[in-house]
Write a protein that binds this DNA or RNA. Structure first.
Length: 445
RNA sequence: GUGGCUAUAGCUCAGUUGGUUAGAGCAUCGGUUUGUGGUACCGAGGGUCGCGGGUUCGAGUCCCGUUAGCCACCCCA
């Protein structure tokens, strides 16, 4: 016998989990579409050269790669952004610009696993390519906000920064060459003490004065307007940095005007993002109740990525919801429903002699737009109801010989255990309509 | 990838200094109740103790390896 098992970091999804995931996917789809993003799809497997050297050394290491049967060097996509840049370069002429797309699909990363970190997980990306407009940047923030709010998360923070601010300050301090190692050290703030980080910076050859300025920058917090004022001072008259601060200021102001509540958007100068391709605004979002989970939705502007595949200038901006990590977080917070069925009505199989009637009833209920499961066996009613309750059906329909004789039906609310008698006199339309209104009423209890 | 912790029935866990047929609660199935689910009682099924080696007269219990999960680093979704 073969032991049934799954690879490290790869998971099965049981109905309760799969239903929760589909609910979030539906919300994401709805929100993306509400801004005009159109669906696309790309292959899971790409030529290796398409994927390597785009994110960072780290992402190259985590890439799943192998030779296919034809001896081609191939890789499983690491994210959805790089394949999209290839897609955009390849299809610009058919798309028209700017082009907005969403893409919800699995990606693969061969890294060590942890809660909310898997080797196969699904991302829900949306991007706008072919425009450098600040409106597209702002829209990214608005979509992320709408998305997390629509999912039903009350407490979250979207943390913004701009690569140009970092680059500007580093340039001003004469540290442009060591930006990666400096950023990596700064990233440890919060976990390590400022003194320890300062020591690490000194080890990298950063002068004490510069280190102090960097530490001040990275630890800035508070209302966005205040942080921006301080950043503005740190940036001085460095051109790039000023552009970054100005861009952030616009986004903060516009987001507020667009109705994003204060406190949900923060400026966090310590957010750098490990992906090399970001050039402007960068964003990470966190659950306030579970910050250790890491970012659940991240993105930014990447103005040169598609340039790797075409001479045409295709600036892009977009973000990605990590739905598997988000669900791991919601589950930990007890916010994932335990429903195991997509159906709304459980039709009890009471009497085998009425199978034809049950099937007609089920058909009528389905025709009225409801999902109904007819139990295949005439087991004890108690057992059937118990299973229905366990699966999370909101309601059961009980129709036995007595009910058939009287032309009635019992509509049972499975959460309140209350039964209502429906008079339908053999008219399937009457029955379906009554079930529909009872179901609506039950949903509001 | 590096380091640490964990691994016993579907789930949560007991299992005494290694010693005869590995236990409990919950869950599942059946019965008390051939027409009604979260209560009660009775009964049943289910584990080669993650897997593979080793030490020993004897290993769930000790050692090594391996696989998986979790935690930290790293990085991020």
């Amino acid at each position: 016998m073969i032991e049934p098992r799954t690879l490290k970091g790869f998971r099965d999804h049981l109905p309760a989990q799969a239903l929760a995931r589909e609910r979030v996917l539906e919300i994401a789809r709805r929100v993306y579409r509400s801004y005009g993003f159109a669906p696309i799809d790309t292959p899971a497997l790409e030529y290796l050269e398409i994927l390597t050297g785009k994110g960072s050394d780290e992402t190259d290491k985590q890439l799943y790669r192998f030779q296919d049967h034809g001896g081609r060097d191939v890789g499983l996509r690491f994210d959805l952004t790089v394949p999209f840049a290839r897609f955009a370069a390849q299809h610009v002429h058919e798309l028209g610009l700017p082009f907005k797309r969403y893409h919800m699909a699995a990606v693969w990363r061969g890294e060590n696993t942890q809660r909310g970190r898997y080797r196969e997980f699904m991302q829900c990306d949306f991007d706008t390519i072919g425009t450098a407009s600040p409106v597209a940047d702002l829209e990214m923030v608005l979509v992320v906000h709408d998305l997390l709010a629509a999912i039903g998360i009350e407490r979250f923070t979207i943390r913004l920064n701009d690569r140009r601010v970092l680059a500007g300050i580093l340039g001003r301090l004469g540290l442009a060459d060591q930006s990666m190692s400096v950023l990596r050290s700064l990233d440890k703030l919060g976990k390590a003490t400022p003194e320890a980080v300062a020591a690490e910076l000194a080890a990298h050859g950063v002068a004490a004065e510069a280190a102090a300025a960097l530490l001040e920058m990275a630890s800035l917090a508070g209302p966005p307007v205040d942080v921006l004022a301080r950043l503005s001072a740190l940036v001085g008259d460095e051109e790039q940095g000023r552009a970054g601060v100005a861009a952030l200021a616009v986004i903060v102001a516009r987001a507020r005007e667009a109705g994003v509540p204060d406190g949900r958007v923060a400026i966090d100068p310590s957010i750098a993002r490990g992906l090399d391709y970001y050039t402007g605004i960068v964003l990470e979002s966190f659950l306030d109740d579970l910050p250790a989970l890491g970012s659940i939705c991240s993105g930014g502007r990447y103005d040169n990525l598609a340039g790797l595949y075409t001479k045409q200038h295709l600036p892009g901006v977009g973000a990605s919801l990590g739905i598997d990590r988000l669900l791991a977080g919601l589950e930990e917070l007890g916010r994932v429903a335990t429903v195991e069925t997509p159906a709304e009505v459980f039709l009890v199989h009471f009497d085998e002699r009425h199978i034809a009637d049950y099937l007609r009833i089920a058909t009528a209920i389905r025709a009225a737009g409801m999902a109904v499961e007819f139990f295949p066996e005439a087991k004890k009613v108690g057992q059937q109801l118990k299973l229905a309750a366990k699966r999370g059906f909101p309601a059961a329909l009980v129709i036995g010989s007595d009910e058939f004789a009287a032309g009635t039906a019992q509509f049972k609310n499975l959460s309140t255990q209350q039964s209502v008698t429906i008079d339908w006199h053999g008219d399937l339309h009457v029955l379906a309509d009554a079930v529909h209104s009872q179901l609506e009423a039950a949903k509001h209890t």
